[in-house]
Design a protein around this nucleic acid. Sequence first.
RNA 1: GACCCCAUCGUCUAGAGGCCUAGGACACCACUCUUUCACAGUGGAGACACGGGUUCGACUCCCGUUGGGGUCGCCA
Length: 468
Amino acid sequence: MNVVTRFAPSPTGFLHIGGARTALFNWLYARHTGGKYLLRIEDTDRKRSTPEAIEAILDGLSWLGLESDEAPVYQFARRERHAEIVQQLIDSGAAYRCYCSPDELAEMREKAKAEKRSMRYDGTWRDRDPADAPAGIDPVIRFKAPQTGETVIEDAVQGTVTVGNTELDDLIMLRADGTPTYMLSVVVDDHDMGVTHAIRGDDHLTNAFRQTQIFNALGWDAPVYAHIPLIHGPDGAKLSKRHGALGVDAYRDMGYLPEAVLNYLCRLGWSHGDDEIFSMEQATAWFDIIDVNKGATRFDYDKLSSLNAKYIDESSNDRLIALALPGIEAALGKPVSDTVRQRLVNGMDSLKSRADTIPQLVDLSMFYCLDRPLAYTDKAAKMLDDDAKARLADIRGPLAELDTWDQESVESTVKAHAEAYNLKLGMIAQPLRAALTGSNVSPGIFEVAAVLGKNEALGRIEDAVAPR
RNA sequence: GACCCCAUCGUCUAGAGGCCUAGGACACCACUCUUUCACAGUGGAGACACGGGUUCGACUCCCGUUGGGGUCGCCA
């Protein structure tokens, strides 16, 4: 079988993390089987669909590299086809006109709730004579759902799921204004697009029953459904705007690399033995729906960050500098000079092993970019007491005499000096760190001195020694 | 409330009846390395929700309980 999968977001907001993973799983499965991965924008809700949301979704997917194999299908553009199918259903007696007003329906639900019955449409117009139709009211078209027996779906993730048909009411397929609803459009589009596997969030599980019924009424084969577990917030509650339900652009802005996000998302609900860190090529080779878990998962920033740190480590210095530069220049309030850029190039290897995210990398890099005199952190200032300043003043001379200024020469000079004066290395190294970086935390101080260059390093020492 | 789904360390997970004294990863703790902070390495603590079955044998199969989640729109 030629596999065709699809990701079908509704453009009513950004692409959130759950949607991104749904897209990823569909993409992986299509790639794994050598099939096709399609994108369908479900924009039949004209009131809530926006071009901005479409843009955000497309941007998010492209940032993650989840490109579809064909141009996106816009569901609303296919409304005539949908209406045509509905007409077909009416003709065959599988659908009917319902003249209940929204208010009547709301009332019906209220009453059902009060009587503690389930809140389903009661089928008022199901078998009523169309001649009773009230004048001046545009009817909706409802699906005449089977009232006996049960509907069974063989879900590729959840297994066999059965529901009694008495639980399902007659859903609306065409609104009073003649536009198709989601439930109908999905069925028609999945069929027309040749979708063989519908991988989607578990929140669609109950929809699968109704869609299966429509497929049956149409005499079409339903795709294989695979309802993947939902992603919850760190506290186990449903992802809401308050926590976790961010657009993927937010993750980019938080300094996460797309390959880290992808790798992390793979491990949320899917696994390949104990493999934790792997490329999309490996994931493609390994991915199968049977290995997807059933239970909901929680989003864990710590683990994402840890993965991100590893991907940052493996990134080229050029890429990292390009990613960090906007943040650095924003903090600086001006573009970086060529000198500073060169320092970043030279210092990046040890900077990047310390950063979990790009903003952290920016923070870590700032001391290479700042102009003299440096501002000191509290701890650095404390480190620069009078004794420390005296020691710095002492070491300045030998350093100034160096002809070759590199990590080795600075290190041997400082070490020799410490030995000669019978000082522990830290007694000089720590004040030196404070002077050179303005902080008590930095990469190896001799490397820092080398990267800074003789002039800048000596200047920063003088700044620290000078009375403030 | 009705219906549906789920249930292994705090979190993500391995586990397809004996391989399990339940493995890995993140987080946590300790140690090593180190001028600092990281990185890295080593070690540690930490789970099969509960109760019944089935079986010679259950984390694995069945039932129930409890807990969690989802759905119940002229939204998708």
